[in-house]
Simulated assay, not measured.
Amino acid sequence: MLEVLISRDRSLSEEAKEAFREEAEAIFQEVLGTPKGRLRLFLWEEKGEEEE
């Protein structure tokens, strides 16, 4: 499992989230030999001051 905390002024687009997931999965496969589909990635987004 990989947990990522993101703090920015704006939320990430769904396309950006998917690209991040794909890249993380590729890195885990290459470096650790994690089988495809085995990595669980959680993206937590903190609201920026403007969104509160």
Rank of each mutant, 00 (worst) to 15 (best):
Arg8Glu: 07
Pro35Ile: 01
Leu43Phe: 12
Arg21Val: 01
Glu51Trp: 13
Glu30His: 05
Leu32Gly: 08
Glu22Asn: 14
Asp9Ile: 08
Arg10Gly: 03
Glu45His: 04
Val4Ser: 02
Arg40Ile: 11
Ser11Asn: 10
Thr34Ile: 07
Ile27Ser: 13
Ser7Glu: 14
Trp44Cys: 08
Arg38Met: 07
Glu45Cys: 00
Gly37Ile: 00
Pro35Asp: 00
Ser11Arg: 12
Glu3Lys: 10
Glu46Met: 04
Gly37Leu: 02
Asp9Pro: 05
Glu49Trp: 13
Glu15Cys: 04
Ser11Cys: 06
Leu43Cys: 09
Glu3Gln: 14
Phe20Gly: 09
Pro35Leu: 00
Gly48Pro: 01
Arg10His: 10
Ser7Lys: 13
Met1Ile: 06
Ser7Gln: 10
Leu41Met: 05
Ala24Phe: 06
Glu50Arg: 09
Glu18Ile: 08
Ser7Cys: 05
Gln29Lys: 14
Leu43Trp: 03
Arg21Gln: 07
Glu30Asp: 12
Leu12Asn: 02
Glu46Leu: 09
Arg8Cys: 08
Leu39Ile: 03
Arg38Ala: 15
Phe20Trp: 11
Met1Glu: 10
Glu50Gln: 08
Ala19Ser: 10
Trp44Gly: 11
Glu3Asp: 12
Lys17Tyr: 10
Pro35Glu: 01
Arg38Cys: 07
Glu52Arg: 09
Leu2Phe: 10
Leu39Glu: 06
Glu25Leu: 09
Glu22Phe: 01
Glu52Met: 07
Leu32Asn: 08
Val31His: 06
Ser11Gln: 12
Lys36Glu: 13
Glu3Thr: 15
Leu12Pro: 04
Leu2Met: 13
Ala16Asp: 13
Leu5Phe: 08
Leu32Pro: 03
Glu46Trp: 04
Glu3Ile: 15
Glu49Ala: 15
Gly37Glu: 00
Gly33Asp: 04
Glu51Phe: 11
Glu18Tyr: 07
Val4Arg: 01
Glu14Asn: 12
Phe42Tyr: 14
Gln29Gly: 07
Gly37Trp: 04
Glu52Asp: 06
Arg10Asp: 12
Val4Tyr: 03
Glu50Ala: 14
Leu2Ala: 07
Lys36Asp: 07
Met1Asn: 10
Glu30Val: 02
Leu43Arg: 03
Met1Phe: 11
Val4His: 00
Glu45Leu: 00
Leu32Trp: 14
Glu23Met: 07
Glu18Phe: 04
Gly48Lys: 02
Trp44Arg: 15
Phe42His: 09
Phe42Ile: 14
Trp44Phe: 13
Glu14Phe: 07
Phe20Met: 15
Met1Tyr: 11
Glu49His: 09
Glu50Thr: 07
Leu2Lys: 03
Phe42Cys: 12
Arg21Asn: 10
Ile6Tyr: 06
Leu12Tyr: 06
Val31Arg: 03
Arg38Glu: 15
Glu23Pro: 00
Glu23Ala: 15
Ser7Leu: 07
Glu15Thr: 12
Ser11Glu: 13
Ser7Phe: 02
Ala19His: 08
Glu50His: 09
Pro35Phe: 00
Glu18Leu: 12
Ser7Arg: 14
Leu41Gly: 02
Gln29Leu: 07
Lys17Asp: 04
Phe28Glu: 06
